[in-house]
Design a protein around this nucleic acid. Structure first.
Length: 465
RNA sequence: GGCGCGGUGGCAGAGUGGUUAUGCAGCGGACUGCAACUCCGUGUACGCCGGUUCGAUUCCGACCCGCGCCUCCA
């Protein structure tokens, strides 16, 4: 298996530290607002990655954290006039709902920063002990960037050049403008925890170093996250962890591509972001998921109505092929016929840095064969190929719906299934009476309501346009 | 300015030193009462300019354009 490693900027053969086992940590979200499409992208990307690793027989330990103490959280809670834990609990629940709707399997562990304050304090103490951190006069504790030799190795930045680019408003308490906070002294009235350096709370990056090390050990296999975390977050995590443990931190760094809107980065600061739930109000969850996997996980994707529409049309082709065929059974990946050419091509694609778009192309070829088999009345082949299609789709987290249910899924305010069925019955009678004008009138009427009719030897079926 | 990524047919989006990506849309045909679905056929696509090569979209160099990070952000 090949995986692109941000650290080396190339694809590498993947070898886990311990044979047969994979330890993976992915940066989850800071819970002060609803998940947006960027979060969905990371969630889906690593969901597919974890499914494939497991399918290949690895015993995976997938840890995805929640950052539930942070400046933005406190500011938002203050604006709302609520306790910060009420805020974080609400958005954690919302995040779980969004993830579930997108078909994201829960991670094996979901540690929260506030649940690891002791580990954070222990790591900070260790960094001070080793000379990599210092307590400043203002009560903050900072990481001493100049002390860490490998600083910049992930993001490709040179420590010297960072100096000139560093913020103009240099905090006087820092020895060096590049230094970053490990511990922030509490302002009056703020939530805080006791520490040897006074009341305060963790800085932004230390929680991930503490939680990952705590859950997975000093050195683990894969660390992932969104594209904008490379610098400074992941760079700082490396600096913290490797300085504290004296050992290499994550072996492979994986980063998802950016989500853009109108060719501009979607971000909170630009205010052009879409939340998962507002998109889910307009599109079937599987359409959203399909949109996210139809580009390689590392490339940038552009959110647009057209692209979501294309995703839906693509899925319609799959579900048309699966019409009338059972959802079950789905065969576990390792029990699929190894000599099957679709399985082989699918696996070749996925084992090459999780190339889902290529895997989807294989599935479309399988659809064509399935459609041909169906036209030829080869029932056994149809059943077999449909099961294979479902099974391979399951690895990507798609094609798990009942075909008619997917094709007929609509939103409130549209024609109800009952109304549609009744009109179809009327049309069947009209056809029997050879009253084609009336039959076509009903077809046109339904089409206006967004419903497409499909006649076949077995009868008339319908779907939403 | 520093570092990095990318420019593929009407659209989306893979990939490759010489042979079909795939899907949608279009066109022609089959099927259909009409449609839809499906099937068959159909596209001289690889930003520009040089170089290497028998041959480059695919490797190398320069250039143009777009984007990202360098500041909170997945």
């Amino acid at each position: 298996m090949q995986i692109y490693n941000t650290l080396s900027r190339k694809k590498e053969a993947f070898t886990p530290i311990e044979a047969g086992k994979v330890k993976m940590y992915v940066c989850g979200m800071t819970v002060y607002d609803y998940c947006h499409l960027g979060h969905a992208r990371v969630l889906v990307a690593f969901d597919v990655i974890s499914r494939y690793l497991r399918a290949k027989g690895y015993e995976l330990n997938y840890v995805r954290n929640i950052t539930d103490i942070d400046d933005k959280i406190l500011r938002r809670a203050d604006e709302n006039g609520e306790d910060y834990t009420a805020l974080t609990e609400r958005f954690i629940t919302a995040m779980h709902e969004d993830a579930e709707r997108l078909g994201i399997a829960p991670p094996d562990a979901e540690p929260r920063a506030t649940g690891h304050i002791e580990d954070i304090l222990a790591m900070i103490a260790r960094l001070i002990e080793r000379g990599f951190a210092y307590a400043a006069d203002n009560g903050d504790v900072y990481y001493r960037v100049s002390r860490f030799e490998g600083y910049g190795k992930l993001s490709g930045k040179k420590p010297d050049e960072l100096l000139s680019g560093a913020r103009i408003a240099v905090d006087e308490a820092k020895e060096d403008p590049r230094d970053f906070a490990l511990w922030k002294a509490a302002k009056s009235g703020e939530v805080s925890w006791p520490s040897p350096w006074g009341e305060g709370r963790p800085g932004w990056h230390i929680e991930c170093s503490a939680m990952s090390t705590c859950c997975l050990g000093d050195n683990f296999d894969i660390h992932g996250g969104g594209p904008d975390l490379v610098f400074p977050h992941h760079e700082n995590e490396i600096a913290q962890s490797e300085a504290a443990t004296g050992k290499p931190y994550a072996n492979t760094w994986m980063h998802a591509g950016a989500v853009r809107v109108d060719n501009e980065k979607m971000s909170k600061s630009l205010g052009n972001f879409f939340t998962i739930r507002e998109i889910l109000d307009k599109y079937h969850p599987e359409v959203v998921r399909y949109f996210l996997i139809s580009s390689h996980y590392r490339s940038a994707i552009n959110y647009s109505e057209d692209n979501l529409q294309i995703a839906r049309q693509n899925l319609e082709r799959f579900y048309h092929a699966l019409k009338g065929l059972p959802v079950e059974p789905v065969t576990p990946y390792n029990e699929l016929p190894a000599d099957n050419r679709y399985v082989q091509r699918f696996d070749a694609a996925m084992s090459d840095d999780f190339a889902a778009p290529e895997a989807l192309a294989v599935l479309f070829d399988l659809v064509r064969e399935l459609n041909n088999a169906r036209a030829a009345g080869e029932d056994a082949a149809v059943t077999e190929q449909a099961a294979l299609l479902r099974s391979l789709g399951a690895l990507l987290g798609i094609l798990g719906c009942e075909a008619e249910a997917f094709l007929q899924a609509g939103s409130a305010g549209e024609l109800s299934a009952e109304e549609i069925e009744s009109l179809i019955a009327e049309r069947v009678q009209a056809k029997k009476d050879r009253d084609f004008a009336r039959a076509d009138g009903i077809r046109a009427q339904l089409l206006e309501g967004g419903v497409v009719l499909e006649d076949s030897r077995e009868g008339t079926t319908w779907r939403r346009a």
